[in-house]
Design a protein around this nucleic acid. Structure first.
Lengths: 210, 210
DNA sequence: CTTAATTTGTAACATCTGTTACATTGTTAT
DNA sequence: ATAACAATGTAACAGATGTTACAAATTAAG
C-alpha cells in the first residue's frame, strides 16, 4: 500500500506524511457499482483515490439522479472534505464507476494534519479548488448545453475514465445519470449514430470521435 | 472600521486577528451595480462582506450570463478564496447587488493567517463549505426546476437580499440573470401576477408571497 | 424449448421554452 | 409639446424535450 501511495501522492506529500497516512489509513478495494457515500451520511473518513473512478451524483426531491462529475486517481471528494471538516451530512452520492482502490483517512487526523503539514493544507485547498472548478463545469454543461451535446460529452467522459472507447451501459442508465427519459436518450443516440459519432449495440456503445 | 469588523466577524475571530485585519485590510464602499470581480481577473485581495449583497454570475461562450447565487454580510467569495490560494484566474463575475461595504484583505496575509490563526483556518474551510452548498443549490435550481419556479425563486431571493418586497428590475435584466429571453420572462411574470403571487409595475415588481 | 423479462426502436402527441414581430404605454431629452 | 427611447404586452410560430404507447429483438429463467 505504501508503494501505491507514493506513486499517486508522493509528489504532493513528504515522506513523513506518507508514512502517517500509511499508518492510520485503511486500504479499500471496491467493485464497480459499489456505493461509497450516500446522501445524508455522516462521513467518518475521507477517501483518497488510488486507482479507478468514482461517479458523483446529486438527487432531486423525487429521488431522481443527476451526474455532477467523475473523480479519478489523485482526486479526493471535496464534498466529503467539506462534510468532514464541517461535521455535516453528505449532500451527494458517490458510486464506484469502475473497480476502485482507495485509502480511507480517519477524519480526526485530517484536522491535525492541516496544522502539522503545509503540504496537506495545500492538498486540501487545492482539492477544494479543483472540485469547485468541476462543479462550475457541471453548471455550464447543465445550463448552457442542449441534451444532445450533454449526452455526447457524457459518453466521452465515461469512455475517458473507463479507458475504453466502448462503454457498457443501457439507454435507461444514461437517462438516469442525465436526469431525462429513456426515449429521449434513444432518440438522440440514434442521431449520433447516423452522424457517425458512435456505434450502438445492445448494452454497449462505441465512441468513434473521442 | 474596526467597529463594523467586530460586529460582523467578532464572533468568528479573536481580537488579535481582528486587529491584524484592521491594519492590513482596506475598507471599500461600492455602489449598486459596481463590478467587483471580472472573469479572468487575477485576484490580489479577498473581499469580506460587511454589509450589502453581491451577485455571483457565470458566463457562457457567447458572453451571456447566469446567476449562481447571492452573497450577504459575513460571507466571502470562495471562488475568490480558491483563486487567491491557487494563484488562478477568476471563473466568475461578482457585481454589487446593493450598495455594499467590504474589507479587502491582501492575498499574502491569507496564507500566513492560515497557519497562524486556527479561527481563520476554520473560516476559510467553512466558507468553502458554504459556497459548495450554495453551488449545489444552484445546480438543483437549474437542473430540477422549470423556468416559472426558477423565476419565482429568483424574485424571492432578490427581495430577501434587498430587504424589500419591492424589487427594482426590468424584465430584460431578469432574463439576463436567468439566461433566457425577455419574452419568456414577461410571459411567466404575467402568469405569476394572475396567480396573485406578484404585482407588476414599470421597473419594479412587488412580491406578495415571500 | 417456452415463457418472461430486458433492451431498443419508433410514432404520435403534449408541453415548455425560445424567436420574431409588432403594438402600446410610460419616460426622457430637446 | 414632440420626438426618441425604454419597457411591457401579446400573438404566432419553431424547436427541444417529455410522455405514452406499443412493437421488435435479444437475453435470461424455468
Amino acid at each position: 500500500m505504501l508503494k501505491e501511495l507514493k506513486e499517486q501522492y508522493g509528489y504532493l506529500f513528504e515522506d513523513e506524511l506518507l508514512q502517517e497516512i500509511n499508518n492510520v489509513g485503511t486500504y479499500k478495494d471496491v467493485p464497480e457499482g459499489f456505493k461509497l457515500i450516500e446522501i445524508g451520511d455522516y462521513i467518518k473518513s475521507m477517501p483518497l483515490l488510488v486507482s479507478g473512478a468514482v461517479k458523483i451524483l446529486r438527487e432531486d426531491k423525487d429521488g431522481e439522479e443527476l451526474i455532477l462529475y467523475f473523480l479519478e486517481h489523485g482526486d479526493t471528494c471535496a464534498m466529503t472534505l467539506s462534510c468532514c471538516l464541517g461535521n455535516a451530512k453528505s449532500e451527494i452520492r458517490a458510486i464506484a464507476e469502475t473497480d476502485t482502490k482507495l485509502i480511507m483517512v480517519p477524519v480526526e487526523k485530517m484536522e491535525v494534519w492541516l496544522s502539522k503539514y503545509k503540504s496537506w493544507q495545500n492538498f486540501v485547498l487545492q482539492s477544494y479548488h479543483n472540485r469547485m472548478t468541476e462543479l462550475l463545469e457541471a453548471v455550464d454543461t447543465i445550463a448552457f448545453l442542449k441534451m444532445d451535446e450533454r449526452l455526447f460529452k457524457y459518453l466521452k467522459d465515461k469512455a475517458m475514465v473507463n479507458h475504453n472507447e466502448v462503454i457498457h451501459v443501457t439507454h435507461q442508465q444514461i437517462a438516469n445519470d442525465l436526469h431525462t427519459s429513456r426515449v429521449v436518450i434513444s432518440r438522440l443516440l440514434k442521431t449520433l449514430e447516423i452522424d457517425g459519432k458512435i456505434e450502438l449495440h445492445r448494452n454497449n456503445i462505441k465512441i468513434l470521435e473521442l
